[in-house]
Every structure is written in structure tokens, then in C-alpha cells.
Amino acid sequence: MRKEKRKLMSPRTLCFLGMAACASMMLSYAESFIPFGLPGLKPGLANIFTVFILYRIGAPYAFAVSLVRCCLTALLFGNAVSLWYSLAGAALSLAVMLLLKQTSAFSPLGVSIAGGVCHNAAQLAVAVAVTGVREIVWYIPLLALGGTVAGVIVGAAAGIMLKKLEKFKIK
């Protein structure tokens, strides 16, 4: 009976997830120093790990790492408001990415493009809800474009990572 009890994850997975959470947090932090011309316009490099974990380990783990990353980033470098922005962005983008991955109609690149755009859409929605200013919708085209470009960058990086670490045992 005791033997049947399944382990939640192997130490190897745990180590990798911890490392991924830490690395993605540092990527979000480093990114915040680079101005990209417009608020909310950034590549979202932390998403590389989310996409990688989504494909290699599983959706629940991707959600967990995203949650940890959002909370730590807000705690260390942000504030209560920025937490809501990143949580909303991460939750919607991950949910959509999971759905698209299940359809198997897209490669990680397409999945991450959809994730990037949804991330921006969610943040825009939070911005409208927080400020009550509907004029923010002016940013929709730019954020859609930015999300697409970000998705391509992230998707390409995640694709390379998935390929290079194909034989690396994580589970």
C-alpha cells in the first residue's frame, strides 16, 4: 500500500522547477531595465520557461512556476498592483497556451505567439479595470503587435531549448 503512493515529483524535477522559477524571475527583472518605447511592451522572456515546462513536464507545473515567479517578482521588485497585472497576464496566456497545445494544431512557436498576445490582452483588461479609463484600448493594435513579436522571440527560444534539452532527463 505504501509503495503505491506516487511521488508528486522527482528531486530532479523539483530542482529544475526551482531553477526555472529563479531564472524566469531574473529574466523579468532584467527586462524591466530595458525600455521598449511603450508601457507593457516587452518580450516577456520569462515565458520561455513557461512554454518549456508546459511541453516537457506538464501544465500544472507550468502554472506553479508562473505563480511563484509572479509572486516573487511582485514581492521583490514590484507592488500589489503589479502583482495583479502579472498574475492576470500569466493566467490567461497560460490557459490559452494550454488549450492550443491540446489541439496540436500549432508548434510551440504558434502557441507562444497566442500566449504573448493573450498576456497583453489580460494586462490591458486589468488596466481598464484598475483605472476605469477606456481610452487604453488605443493600445490594442500596438500590444497585439508587440505580443506577436514577443511570442515569436519566446517561442523560438523555447523551441531551441526543447530541442537542445530533448535528451536531458527532467522527470
Binding site: 500549432f106 508548434s107 504558434g110 497566442a114 515569436v152
Partner: peptide, 9 residues
Amino acid sequence: KRRNDIILA
């Protein structure tokens, strides 16, 4: 998949 990616983008 590649084609779908491009269509999406």
C-alpha cells in the same frame, strides 16, 4: 503546424 503558426501570426 508550421503553416498554422504562420497563419496565426
